[in-house]
Simulated scan of single mutants.
Amino acid sequence: MAVNVNNAFVGTPPIDGGVFFRAPQGTDLPTDSLEALDPAFADHGAVGENGVTVAQTRDNTDIKMYGGKTFLNVQTSYDEQVTITLLEDDNEAVLRTAFGDANVEITPATTTAGTKKVIYHTADPLPISSFVIDSISGSKTKRYVIENGQVVNVAEIVDVHNNVTSRTITVKTYAPNSLELRGGNVVEYRDDGRFAPATP
C-alpha cells in the first residue's frame, strides 16, 4: 500500500480555540464532529502544548492448560481515561471542573471591587459529567464525546514567576447510558472535510 500523507492527523485547536467542554449529565450530546454544542457545555479555554491524551487500558490473563501451556488469553478489565492541561486558571469552568460546582463561589465586580472568587478545597468526589473534546487538522475535524466521565485526579498546582498556573486533570470514563453510543466509554467522531464531487 502506498504512503499517503493526506491520512495524517496533526491535532490543533479549532479556529475558535474551543477544545475541552463539560456539561451536566443528561445534556444533549453531539452526534458528529461538526454539530454545534448544547450551550450547557462550558468552554475551558486554552489547553497546554501536550494537547489531549486518550489512554485505553486492557488487563489480560492467560488461562493455562495442564502441562503449563496457554490455552487462551482472556481480557479481565477495560479502562479509558483522558488527560489534559488547562491553562486558564481564572476561567470559571476550569475552577468548577477542578474543584466541583458547589465549591466555587463567584461575586460579580462592582464599582468598588473586582470579581471575587472563593474556592473550597474539599474531599468531596467530583461529579460525573459529560465531556466533549475537539481538535482539527486542516479541514479535518475530530471530536471525542464522553457521556459519563469523572475528574479523578488534578495534578499538583504550581504558582511560579516563570510560568502560568495550570491544572492537569484526568477524566475517568464510564460506560454510557445511551444505547446509540453502543457501549463506548468514549465515542470518536471524524470528518475529513473532503466533499464528494457533484454528480452531473
Rank of each mutant, 00 (worst) to 15 (best):
E92A: 10
H44K: 02
A46C: 04
G149D: 10
P39K: 02
N177V: 14
T12P: 00
V145D: 10
N148F: 04
R190F: 05
V151L: 03
S139P: 08
E188Q: 12
E35N: 01
A93F: 02
I169L: 11
P30W: 00
V3N: 15
A36L: 11
A42W: 01
G17N: 02
P200A: 15
N91W: 13
T70I: 14
N73G: 06
V104G: 03
G11Q: 03
S77R: 15
A113S: 13
N153G: 09
E180M: 02
I84C: 09
R143V: 04
V82D: 02
V74R: 07
D192I: 14
T31A: 08
N50Y: 05
N7Y: 07
T170D: 02
T173I: 05
T97C: 11
N185R: 15
L72T: 05
Y66G: 13
P197K: 09
E180R: 04
E35Y: 00
Q25D: 01
V54G: 14
A113L: 07
R190I: 10
F99K: 00
I146R: 04
R167S: 00
E35I: 02
V132C: 00
D134M: 03
T115D: 06
P197W: 09
M65F: 08
A102Q: 08
G45M: 00
T53R: 09
F71R: 12
Q56P: 12
V158C: 01
G18N: 06
E105G: 11
A36E: 12
G48M: 03
E180K: 11
G149K: 11
A113M: 06
L72Y: 13
V19C: 07
D191K: 07
I146H: 05
Y66K: 12
G114M: 09
I106M: 13
T12A: 12
A2M: 06
D79E: 15
Y120L: 12
T53V: 11
D192S: 11
E156A: 11
Q75L: 06
R190T: 11
I63C: 08
N185G: 06
T170K: 11
E92L: 09
Q25A: 09
N185I: 00
D16L: 07
A23K: 04
L95A: 11
T12Y: 04
R194L: 13
P14F: 00
P125C: 01
E49T: 09
S129T: 04
A23M: 08
E105M: 13
I157F: 05
A42R: 10
D90V: 11
L95R: 13
T57Q: 12
D28P: 15
V145G: 08
T97Q: 09
L86K: 09
D192L: 03
L126P: 09
A113P: 03
N91R: 01
A109P: 12
T85Q: 08
I136Y: 03
M65G: 15
K140C: 10
H121M: 14
Q75E: 12
P108M: 10
G45F: 00
S178M: 05
N4G: 00
T110R: 07
I128P: 01
V186Q: 01
V54S: 14
T165A: 12
G11N: 02
G51D: 11
P197S: 10
A196R: 14
E147S: 05
S33R: 10
A102V: 11
Y174G: 05
T53Q: 15
I133P: 01
L95K: 10
V52A: 01
V145C: 02
